[in-house]
Design a binder for these strands. Sequence first.
DNA 1: TCCTACGATGGACCAAGTCCAAGTCAATAC
DNA 2: GTATTGACTTGGACTTGGTCCATCGTAGGA
Lengths: 138, 138
Amino acid sequence: MSDLLDRLRGRGWRMTAQRRVVAEVLDGDHIHLTADEVLARATTRLPEISRATVYNTLGELVSLGEVIEVATDGRAKRYDPNAHRPHHHLVCSGCGTIRDVHPGGDPLADLPTSERFGFTVSEAEVTYRGLCPDCTRA
Amino acid sequence: MSDLLDRLRGRGWRMTAQRRVVAEVLDGDHIHLTADEVLARATTRLPEISRATVYNTLGELVSLGEVIEVATDGRAKRYDPNAHRPHHHLVCSGCGTIRDVHPGGDPLADLPTSERFGFTVSEAEVTYRGLCPDCTRA
DNA sequence: TCCTACGATGGACCAAGTCCAAGTCAATAC
DNA sequence: GTATTGACTTGGACTTGGTCCATCGTAGGA
């Protein structure tokens, strides 16, 4: 079932109950949970798990490149398990939900050297904002 | 000197010493200060100003459309006085400084209807990430 | 110049996240 | 199977960024 767990084990990641549960929670649907939501879901499977561990594990998954940290609104960060395939995000200004989108075009190519100011630019991330169908109606 | 202050006055914005100072701080250079930095600079001009007032005033400038709130990293929000001209941001992953950039191309046009999932998409913001000259050296 | 509604104050409060000393346990070695 | 040990987990204190609210002050109109 879990590619993610296999990959992690293969990379020599020390496996503990807590880490497994966090990885499993993320590996489920491709939704974008906050750390607190991850904690809540992890707690239903492993009631003793602590907040610090969830933060530690999330941080580790991010630095392993298995999960992407998304900070769209200055509130809680969200964690995106779809790190395999490059994509961008469509955020609802009403309720905050996020969808992955795969637009055409490469924004990095649109940034001429003259607009780079000596930076070593490595990444371009696009955030589309709007209202989701539910919030449009409301 | 200040178009911003004139515009605000013209819109019937009640002018107080505190509001003027906050607007002046932002209106200076086109850098992107955090609320705390705004407070620090405002304090040098008007020592009695309070944190709550700075937050209130910033929030008001944002909803008047005179200032843009930029949340690039899940840490402190930054305030961008360059609301007149559409632009995107180049963020240093090392030190967090932000530069305005004006790339070619329109990312909104790159998002086909099939990738909009029924959203009413109104805006696309691009964040370029990389290392600034100083952080590249270090 | 006086009034009054709007703005400012500061201190309490809140949410998200980090830190740390002490305890626990997965993986390796025997 | 047991011992060992360094990495992982815990929970509670702490930090940071931000909001709320009752009270006080004042800009701007009459």
